Simulated assay, not measured.
Amino acid sequence: MISSAFAAAAEHGAAVAHHGPFYTEAHFWVDVAFILVVALAFKPVSRAIAAALDARAAKIKARLDEAHKLREEAQEMLATYQRKQRDAMKEAEEIIAHAKAEAERLAQQAAKDLDASIKRREQMAMDRIAQAEAQAMKEVQNLAVDVAIGAAQKLIGESLSAAQTTSLVDTAIQALPGKLH
């Protein structure tokens, strides 16, 4: 920019005839003023630009640091959740294995209980059968006794006289107190 100003001044000076020394020309002083303004403004403007660029670089660095920090936190959280998921899967597998073992144990216990129940019912049935046999035997014995008594009565009644029958009844009555004690 400065060189273009000098080049423009040189062309202008070449086209225009010189009326005196170069420092008397207005273009010279305009160029000098422009250079002075640019030189004086350069330092604060460059500082402001550098400060703005530094501030922007600091913001970008802060954002990058924050993004890096967030990424690390996200990776830690992901690792934590993956660990928790693995732990949960192990726990679920343990629960399933325990449930299967418990179900198998309960099935075996149920089979044992069923066998015991069947044996108990079979024993009860056998006991009932034995009771029924005993009762039938008793009924048959009672019936046989009744038939024997009836036959004995009939036989005694037909073969004994009235005096013999009275004598047998009296003897049985006298022997009765000895048989009851």
Rank of each mutant, 00 (worst) to 15 (best):
F22T: 05
A107W: 02
Q82K: 15
S159G: 03
K119F: 04
A33Q: 13
P177K: 03
K84S: 09
A33K: 12
E102C: 03
D146T: 03
Q164I: 11
A62P: 01
A136G: 05
Q108L: 13
A7W: 01
L40H: 00
A58H: 10
G157W: 05
A57F: 07
H12K: 14
I149S: 04
R47P: 00
V140H: 07
G178D: 07
R56C: 01
L78W: 01
T166Y: 03
A10E: 11
G20H: 02
L53Y: 04
A62W: 00
Q123P: 00
A7K: 12
R121Y: 14
A41V: 07
L160S: 06
Q141S: 03
V140C: 04
A55C: 01
A175W: 01
E139I: 08
A10C: 09
E72M: 05
H18V: 10
G150V: 01
H12N: 15
A10M: 11
Q75C: 07
A10L: 14
A79Y: 03
A172T: 06
A88Y: 03
D65L: 06
A144S: 02
G157N: 15
A125P: 01
A136Q: 10
E76T: 06
A107P: 00
I118Y: 09
A92M: 05
A136N: 04
A15M: 08
P177F: 01
A111Q: 12
R86G: 01
E25A: 10
A116I: 08
A101M: 12
A8L: 03
Q109V: 10
Q164A: 13
A132I: 09
A163C: 04
A107F: 09
D54I: 03
A58D: 13
A14R: 14
R47T: 12
V169W: 01
T80S: 14
E102H: 07
A110E: 09
A15G: 12
M126A: 15
S161Q: 05
L40S: 07
E158A: 15
H12M: 15
A39P: 00
R105L: 12
S117G: 05
F34M: 07
A134C: 02
R120W: 07
L36G: 02
T171F: 05
S167T: 05
M77C: 09
H19W: 06
A132F: 02
G150W: 00
A111S: 05
R105I: 08
Q85H: 01
P21N: 07
A15R: 13
A5N: 05
K90R: 13
I173K: 15
G178N: 04
K112F: 02
I156L: 14
D54W: 01
Q131F: 15
E158M: 11
G178Q: 04
A107V: 04
T165P: 00
R71A: 15
F6E: 06
A92N: 02
S3W: 06
Q108F: 11
Q123N: 10
K179N: 08
A148I: 10
H18E: 06
I60Y: 02
Q135A: 15
F6R: 06
A172C: 10
L78I: 02
A8N: 07
